[in-house]
């Protein structure tokens, strides 16, 4: 039997992910031609620095959405980890202690979500809307309206400085490593296969011996830990630990993941599509910002793009069904 029904180039090019990549390239080309100052080296620097937290969080979010679940508490974990990092620093702990401690706290936050979803059998949407409020409340409660800002310059500079003379920030290296790790995890490990199977049919996965509950717990813990890491980065990048850091970022993350071709119903998605989705949102925002467009309008654009990306496949699917009724399964 043949391994594939279609030749390799069709399988590589005719994908939902490739569509996002094409739109990203088109957006880049148009912005470079039209937007004054977009083609400068600073664009790359700021693009990477700006999208880094969203990109980080989008990686585990891809896996969670691929199982058909969702984690809306990520931005609150960013806030909570930022505050923890700041308070530990204020209390005199070294940042090499504060960093892992904050990430650990994020993992615990994720474990709480994961336990309630996987072992409590509760819908992740409800659980993580609850913990969104809970973790944000804790973050703001711990630090009030004040901020911790006196971080050592070696750390804050490290979060923003470039690789030698290149326009690429040092953090790019870390991002690339994590992207690779998550891409391998989703696409080339038994664990990743199980994740997609759960999204397609968790019942069938269970009957194949997949520990669905443990898999979900692991994903939520990963999501919490990576969100906390993003929280530390966010703190250093802006040199400020605040309880309201990254408020509302969960929407950008979910938007990027869905724009990247991950099905909100679970069962399909790819890391390279999500990276393109994150960059697409980044390019749109920075181009519009350079044009002097306000944040509200940028949100409208991103929101519209998100709705279209969710609705379009449905419409396209509907049209395909109309033209060619589903192949009869015989009698």
């Amino acid at each position: 039997m043949r391994t594939h029904a279609r030749p390799w180039w069709q399988r590589a090019l005719l994908t939902r992910e490739m569509l996002t990549i094409l739109i990203l390239v088109a957006a880049w080309v148009v912005a470079s031609a039209v937007v004054q100052g977009f083609d400068g080296p600073l664009t790359i620097t700021y693009l990477v620095l700006d999208v880094a937290p969203v990109l980080l969080i989008a990686l585990p979010m891809t896996l969670i959405i691929a199982t058909g679940e969702i984690d809306l508490s990520v931005a609150s974990v960013v806030g909570l980890s930022s505050v923890t990092f700041g308070l530990l620093h204020q209390a005199g702990f070294g940042l090499w202690v504060a960093l892992p401690a904050s990430v650990l706290l994020g993992a615990v936050c994720g474990a709480v979500n994961g336990t309630l979803v996987a072992y409590g059998g509760l819908p992740s949407l409800a659980v993580t809307i609850g913990s969104l409020a809970l973790y944000r409340g804790l973050a703001v409660g711990l630090l009030g309206t004040t901020a911790v800002t006196d971080f050592p310059e070696s750390w804050t500079d490290g979060a923003t400085e470039n690789l030698g003379e290149s326009p690429w920030p040092v953090v790019t290296l870390g991002l690339v490593v994590l992207i690779a790790v998550f891409a391998v995890l989703l696409h080339a490990t038994p664990f990743g296969r199980n994740v997609l199977d759960i999204g397609r049919s968790s019942e069938a996965a269970r009957f194949s011996g997949v520990d669905v509950k443990r898999t979900l717990l692991v994903l939520f813990v990963l999501s919490g830990a990576v969100s906390a890491l993003a929280g530390v980065y966010y703190t250093l990048r802006y040199g400020s630990a605040r309880g309201d850091n990254a408020t509302g970022m969960e929407l950008q993350v979910v938007a990027a993941v869905l724009l990247g071709g991950v099905s909100i119903f679970g069962g399909r998605g790819a890391i390279h599509g999500v990276v393109a989705g994150v960059l697409l949102i980044g390019v749109l925002s920075s181009a519009l910002r350079l044009e002097g467009v306000t944040v509200n309008v940028i949100n409208i654009v991103i929101g519209t793009a998100l709705v279209v990306s969710v609705v379009a496949p449905r419409i396209a699917g509907g049209l395909r069904v109309r033209r060619r009724p589903a192949v009869g399964q015989g009698s």
């Binding site: 997609l196 199977d197 397609r200 049919s201 019942e203 069938a204 009957f207």
Partner: peptide, 11 residues
């Protein structure tokens, strides 16, 4: 429902 993941390939 239980025997196979119908959305997935034979492989």
């Amino acid at each position: 429902l239980e025997g196979l993941v119908t959305e997935s390939s034979v492989a």
